[in-house]
Design a protein around this nucleic acid. Structure first.
Length: 495
RNA sequence: GGGCCGUUAGCUCAGUCGGUAGAGCAGUUCGCUUUUAACGAAUUGGUCCUGCGUUCGAGUCGCAGACGGCCCA
């Protein structure tokens, strides 16, 4: 937390300048108002020539951070950066009020300034503000990273994201895109009459997913609570309550390892649709992905690095057992035999495979051997009942449930199923989870009696889906690590 | 948890065989009224991640640790 604050000459020089500013009045004014943003000016006036500007002068005020400066005696150019982009200003000693140019010469890269003046084009045709007034709005006490390379050190980019955003345009782009993606998802659901809700982040009963939780304590209630691992059971209570189309975009917390695909807190979209099943949801996801990519990227074809995904086409569909059979070159019917599963599990170095049920063995084989190879969008269906305690039993086979997971680029992107709305079956499944927990499965759920009671009032037939937003953003931006799409990824404290 | 790689000036990076720690940018000073990574000249700036060890001598070699990255389970 308290990384040692390093004082060096560069900072001391700037502090001396700040002291001078303080002695002249308020060093942190907040009465400058801009009327223009940089990119908007380029868009509106980029094609103008100086004749046009002379006939029809445009006076503008902009504000931003000084990123570059070119000082030539009694005239200078500076590059100002705002939320929109960058614009150049031309400061000429003779054209500024008494003393302003001399003050400007004491400013540093990274200082925040307000500039007013008329637009013109330089010799080389660059749109520039010919300043008639300049003001220092905020003194920067620390030097910015190197002006061309930007901030490169990965650790510093994560710990001091503000410097990364200021100096690395690509990084800023990723987070702008992330915001647009989430915005378009909201629009898509809104257009289809889904209601957006927020459900509790602090749960007294653990459920909704197989994961290890974070625990916390409420002092006034003297009660231990879990940070939620999933919002599922609350959202389905809302479906019982008549919110037949409902969604939530919010954080989940899982107390597990970190990797390029995992951060302890991550953003999940979950939605539920009454009178729909998992097959309907697969089609819905296809249209969601097509729509979001078209609206955000302008095309349903996403090309990043050496991968290409066309979201205008229906996704591939495979069964879990079929995918494992194909990958390991075994017959599907053999994958129903315990001895075959065990020998494959041994070959795949699965831990404690002798203690696992057949369904879990199959699932873990899939995770170990198949998942990573599913590059093109693929729905996997046919999940075993025992690893899906909230899913509806398949009408075709009582050992399996009506569930799918979506894989793209070797990563799990979505998980959905027809919901189990039989309260007696749900009670039995919770009991099985409690037994698994008792026998050492830290990821098993707890018995949620209140949820079973809600089901007893009647949950309409429905289906729900969870989509990992961070992984979706990785996919659409080509980011190789989840840390590149999280503004402040979890890192170890340096103390 | 294991393996590999990295950590040197504010930033980006060099650093030979173990022998006085370097460059570019930024900063400071001077010059320069259309520059664009502005330019020219001079110049300041170091806990070489931390600790211990080997050695006459360690940024460099060894051991332990911290943090980060990638890969594996």
């Amino acid at each position: 937390m308290s990384e040692k604050i390093t004082e060096n000459d560069l900072i001391l020089q700037r502090k001396t300048k700040l002291a001078e500013l303080r002695s002249e009045g308020n060093a942190y004014p907040n009465d400058f108002r801009r009327d223009s943003l940089s990119e908007a000016l380029h868009a509106q006036y980029g094609e103008f020539d100086n004749e046009t500007f002379e006939a029809n002068p445009k006076h503008v005020s902009v504000a931003g951070r000084i990123m570059l400066q070119r000082i030539m005696g009694k005239a200078s150019f500076i590059t100002l950066q705002d939320m929109d982009g960058q614009i150049q200003a031309y400061l000429r000693s003779n054209d500024l009020p008494e003393g302003q140019y001399e003050n400007f010469k004491t400013w540093d890269l990274g200082d925040i300034a307000g500039i007013s003046g008329k637009l013109f084009k330089t010799k080389t045709g660059e749109l520039t503000i010919h300043a008639d007034s300049v003001r220092l709005l905020t003194k920067s006490l620390r030097p910015l990273p190197e002006k061309h390379a930007g901030l490169v050190d990965t650790e510093q980019r994560y710990r001091k994201r503000y410097l990364d955003l200021l100096t690395n345009e690509d990084s800023l782009k990723v987070f702008k895109l992330r915001s647009q993606i989430i915005g378009e998802i909201r629009s898509f659901f809104g257009e289809q009459d889904y209601l957006e809700v927020e459900t509790p982040m602090m749960h007294s009963v653990l459920g909704g997913a197989a994961a290890k939780p974070f625990t916390t304590h409420h002092n006034a209630l003297d009660m231990d609570l879990y940070l939620r691992i999933a919002p599922e059971l609350y959202l389905k209570r809302l479906v019982v309550g008549g919110l037949e189309k409902v969604f939530e975009i919010n954080r989940n917390f899982r107390n597990e390892g970190l990797s390029t695909k995992h951060n302890p807190e991550f953003t999940m979209l979950e939605y539920y649709t009454a009178y729909a099943d998992f097959e309907d949801q697969m089609i819905f996801i296809e249209s969601l992905f097509k729509s979001v990519t078209e609206r955000v990227l302008g095309s349903s074809v996403v090309e990043t690095n050496d991968h290409k995904y066309d979201f205008s086409k229906p996704f591939k569909r495979l069964t879990l057992i079929g995918a494992v059979a194909e990958k390991l070159s075994v017959k599907e019917e053999d994958l129903r035999k315990r001895e075959v599963l065990e020998s494959l599990a041994k070959k795949s170095h699965l831990e404690d495979y002798k203690d696992l049920s057949e369904g879990r063995l199959l699932f873990e084989l899939f995770e170990a051997e198949v998942e990573e190879s599913l590059d093109q969008p693929t729905f996997i269906t046919g999940y075993p009942k025992e690893i899906s305690p909230l899913s509806r039993i398949s009408d075709d086979d009582p050992d399996f449930v009506d569930r799918f997971e979506l894989f793209i680029g070797g990563k799990e992107i979505a998980n959905g199923f027809s919901e189990l709305n039989d309260p007696e079956d749900q009670a039995d499944r919770f009991k099985a989870q409690v037994e698994q927990k008792a026998s050492g499965d830290e990821e098993a759920m707890e018995y949620d009696a209140d949820y079973v009671e809600a089901l007893e009032y009647g949950l309409p037939p429905c289906a729900g889906v969870g989509i990992g937003i961070d992984r979706l953003v990785m996919l659409l931006t080509g980011a190789p690590s989840i840390r590149d799409v999280l503004l402040f990824p979890q890192l170890k404290s340096k103390d």
